[in-house]
Simulated scan of single mutants.
Amino acid sequence: MSEKVVLYYFNGRGVMESIRWLLAAAGVQFEEVLLTKREQFEKLLNDGALMFQQLPLVEIDGMQLVQSKAIMNYIAGKYNLNGSGLKERAMIEMYSEGLRDLMEMIMILPFKKTDEKETQLGVTQEKAKSRYFPVYEKALSGSQYLVGSQLSRADVHLMEATLMLEEKFPTILSTFPSLKAFQDRMRSLPTINKFLQPGSQRKPQPDDAYLKNVTEVLKLQLS
């Protein structure tokens, strides 16, 4: 197994994108094995690399890690993105899980029927503005970071989530000044700024090619 960090996933965002964000924020270089054929997935299964027969898979420190939450917890712990002490970590986990719930509402869109997408978008926008963003706006009022006095995984996830929502709703942060200021601060961080530049390993919004790739490799039957 390579000593390098290697990510196994599709050529798209999905649940791997938050992992890419964390590694990038920590300044960690990583390689990617992009699955384009069913045979690649079957080889991982046959090699015993996928504990629960599903992606994502990350090779790091001589381990094959699966389950996105476990992967992100390991990366956050290894690169000092998990706060100081149990209480800070608990807060970071709560903020991160909330953002995961929010981002999942966007991630499922490509797999929705066309007539369901507009409804899903409306629900997502309403919940972002009434349930999720007010929490982070309050936490950042007068504070540079969500938790404590240093960057944490929650901050990285928040940056990813706000940019993701702005792609769908360009003015969604217009009534959340602390979130806008937070974005500006995050953009000034060298590792984040580098990840936001063209040519980075950040993935674009999913398109039909991504959907076709995922469904063929995993043999999904979409309704």
Rank of each mutant, 00 (worst) to 15 (best):
K203R: 15
G85C: 10
E118C: 02
L179N: 00
V66K: 07
S2P: 14
Q29S: 13
L34Q: 09
K43I: 01
S178A: 12
A128M: 12
Q221D: 14
P190A: 05
G122D: 09
L34M: 15
G122Q: 10
K37W: 06
L86F: 08
L220Y: 11
Y9R: 01
L163A: 01
L23V: 00
P198Q: 07
R38H: 04
M51D: 10
V5H: 07
G148K: 02
K117M: 09
M63Q: 15
I108A: 06
S68Q: 14
M107Y: 13
Q150L: 06
Y95G: 14
I92V: 09
K180A: 12
R131E: 12
V214I: 12
L121Q: 12
A24H: 02
V135N: 03
F10N: 13
S130T: 14
A76W: 01
K212I: 10
V156Q: 05
F169Y: 15
S130F: 05
M164D: 13
A209G: 00
Q183G: 09
V217E: 10
L211H: 02
Y210D: 11
G12N: 03
E3L: 07
G142H: 14
S84G: 09
M159W: 09
E216F: 00
P190M: 07
N80Q: 12
R202Y: 01
D207M: 08
I192N: 09
I60R: 07
D115Q: 15
K138Q: 15
L211N: 05
I106H: 08
L151S: 07
A24C: 05
K113Q: 14
G199R: 10
L211T: 15
L165M: 15
E42T: 14
R13E: 04
G27E: 02
G98R: 11
Q40K: 00
I172C: 14
F133G: 06
T124F: 02
E216V: 06
D208V: 13
T175Y: 10
Y74P: 12
S188V: 04
N73I: 09
I71A: 05
V33L: 03
Q67F: 00
Y74A: 11
Q201D: 13
R187L: 13
A70H: 04
K69T: 13
K112E: 12
L55H: 02
V135K: 13
I172A: 06
S149F: 08
K194Y: 03
M159D: 05
D208H: 08
V33W: 04
F176A: 04
F133R: 03
G62D: 02
P177T: 01
K168Q: 13
L220M: 15
T191D: 09
L50H: 06
L189G: 00
F169C: 11
Y9H: 06
Q197G: 04
E42F: 04
E3W: 05
Y79V: 00
A70D: 02
Q64V: 00
L165N: 02
L196P: 02
L196F: 09
K194T: 14
S68A: 12
A161P: 07
L218R: 05
A76P: 00
L55R: 08
T162N: 06
Q54I: 05
A154L: 00
T124I: 01
G14N: 10
L220W: 12
